[in-house]
Write a protein that binds this DNA or RNA. Structure first.
Lengths: 84, 84
DNA sequence: TACTTATTTAGAAATTTGTCTAAATACCTA
DNA sequence: TAGGTATTTAGACAAATTTCTAAATAAGTA
């Protein structure tokens, strides 16, 4: 849960998830959507990966990132428990 | 949304919410559940309040804190949108 | 093989965060 | 009013976070 909350606690990372919801994208395509250096985006992608929110598949020279929302189920359950 | 994710991104603050789910508590009672100084707990309560996750009502010398889960609805909706 | 492109890793700087102690504020009671 | 209890505010410090540039790695192509 910790890595999940941590990953979600950043505007850029949330925006990356919203992008990936529409299409799988490679790292460079993701970076092109932001005014942030590629290494920084790479770091954000790493945090999202650590939380299980994205998966990465090497495609030759490229790395394709996809969203994985299953890990959010635990978060939704936590919230629901709090709501009774 | 930012203050909400920020507030939730800390184990102590999440534990405070879980406590308040069971009972309203005053600041001292909350602090007694943790191995952290009262000023630190006060700071955590402030962040929770900023996010709208708790409300505080002065009760004489005491301040009673209550959970408010309504603000989490927006978070759940954001997650659901991401899930399609 | 040499060059280019895609991506990550490394290391550094600025900012934010979580924690503490000491002091301030607010309320209660004798 | 004086003294005690509950809580917050202020200021400091260490650790974590976000960002950058430069360099390293990996793959495609002439």
């Amino acid at each position: 849960m910790n890595s999940l909350f941590k990953a979600l606690n950043d505007h850029t990372r949330r925006a990356i998830l919203e992008l990936l919801k529409e299409n799988d994208l490679n790292a460079g395509e993701i970076a092109n959507h932001f005014d942030i250096s590629k290494p920084s985006i790479s770091h954000h992608l790493d945090l999202l990966k650590q939380a299980g929110l994205v998966t990465a598949i090497k495609n030759g020279q490229y790395i394709t990132y996809s969203i994985n929302t299953i890990v959010m189920d635990e978060l939704v359950q936590w919230i629901m428990k709090l709501k009774d």
